[in-house]
């Protein structure tokens, strides 16, 4: 029951999805399964929310280190959920878009989520700059090729690259840095990315087959062994 039913479900759903591509008779069922998948995905969001509540409530009740910040998490969670589920301040009423700018949900999104998420990712600019100074060394031929390609792309995607080599005659236009950058993207980069893509593609296909046929069972946890 614990192992066989999930394996059977995986086999049935996976096979049906593949068959639905080839057979119009099962196409509709494949679409229905897609909608079912969407609904289950929402329950996965709820599971995430539930888990978040459990972890942070435990942390607060046991007064673990930094438990005060768990209060912040819970306040943010509850306020956002309350604002969204009840569409607080939504001018268009219950039928209008939940993210309407004037609603409380919209306001929290614009003034809390947007600055937080975008700033978190912008920190990477500092780290990549620091790594450029400390880590990128032309230690061997391969590393040098990588750095030269990076230089050409970095210069070629700005007006500075255009200026440096704009004096080149049309018969040597490949040597202009922006053109060289375009050529690298369209040719060696394309070739390298395609080799990686074919490798990953084959990997995904074989892994999908292993999952559908029940050979790969790690998603079941310990009992899958």
């Amino acid at each position: 029951m614990k192992r066989q039913v999930p394996l059977l479900i995986t086999f049935f759903v996976g096979t049906l999805l593949i068959v639905s591509i080839f057979s119009p008779a099962t196409e509709n069922l494949g679409e229905e399964f897609s909608v079912f998948f969407d609904v289950i995905a929402v329950f996965a969001f709820f599971l995430g929310g539930g888990n978040l509540l459990r972890v942070h409530l435990t942390k607060i009740s046991r007064k673990r280190e930094d438990w005060v910040y768990s209060v912040v998490t819970l306040v943010g969670f509850i306020v956002m959920l309350w604002a969204g589920l009840f569409k607080i301040g939504n001018e268009g009423g219950i039928a209008a878009s939940v993210t309407e700018e004037s609603s409380l949900f919209g306001m929290v999104f614009y003034s809390v989520l947007i600055p937080l998420q975008s700033t978190m990712y912008s920190l990477l600019a500092f780290f990549i700059a620091s790594a450029s100074y400390r880590a990128f060394r032309a230690k061997n031929r391969e590393a040098t090729i990588l750095l030269v390609a990076a230089f050409i792309i970095l210069l070629g995607r700005t007006a500075f690259g255009t200026m440096l080599t704009s004096w080149m005659p049309p018969s040597l236009s490949l040597a202009e840095i922006p053109n060289l950058a375009i050529w690298i993207m369209n040719s060696p980069n394309l070739a390298g990315q395609r080799a990686i893509m074919i490798g990953i593609g084959l990997g995904v296909v074989s892994m999908s087959l292993r999952i559908i046929l029940g050979v790969e069972r790690t998603y079941l946890g310990d009992d899958g062994k």
Binding site: A129, Y133, R134, L147, F151, L154, A159, F160
Partner: peptide, 16 residues
């Protein structure tokens, strides 16, 4: 963007 690219290139060169 342009200025930052030049600075990053300089960082890599100086690091080397």
């Amino acid at each position: 963007q342009t200025l930052a690219h030049i600075v990053i290139i300089a960082f890599i060169v100086f690091g080397n």
